[in-house]
């Protein structure tokens, strides 16, 4: 068993996948639906794929439409992230995750953030309130 950390459920569900981290806020409108690649000019993870990954990021940004619609387009190509871990949730992102049924959590100990790195396999279990680095 890997290292477990308690978390707070935002959107229900459970998923295990590879991690991709960014220090920058995300707008799913700026992710290319066809392959799940971050396409925003000057974004820290521009060119990287977020499809089917556990995405660790601070929170959302942008207009009140961009998250759910962006996720909807990703979903049509099967390219939504598997789970979302945030530190500063906002209602636009939260509503988007709940409606598109992606597990999302927050409130995790800093040790998790210090330990986890790109490429790690992580389980996000929103229903039971933990994340685990496998």
């Amino acid at each position: 068993m890997g290292k477990r950390f308690a978390c707070h459920k935002i959107s229900e569900g459970c998923a295990t996948a590879e991690v991709i981290k960014t220090k920058e806020r995300i707008m799913f409108y700026q992710v290319r639906p066809e392959d799940g690649m971050m396409d925003e000019k000057d974004h820290e993870i521009r060119g990287k794929i977020i499809a089917k990954k556990v995405l660790i990021f601070p929170g959302g940004k942008g207009s009140s439409v961009v998250q759910q619609d962006g996720l909807y387009h990703l979903d049509r190509f099967g390219n939504m992230p598997s789970a979302l871990i945030v530190s500063d949730p906002d209602p636009v992102l939260v509503a988007g995750a709940i409606i598109m049924e992606i597990p999302m959590v927050d409130r995790i100990d800093q040790e998790f953030y210090d330990t986890v790195k790109d490429g790690d396999q992580v389980t996000v279990n929103a229903d039971e309130g933990y994340v685990e680095i496998l």
Binding site: S64, V65, Q67, Q68, V92, V94, A95, G96
Partner: peptide
């Protein structure tokens, strides 16, 4: 709050 389009409709 900074509602999303969806949450405002809800």
């Amino acid at each position: 709050n900074r509602e999303s389009a969806n949450s405002a409709l809800c």
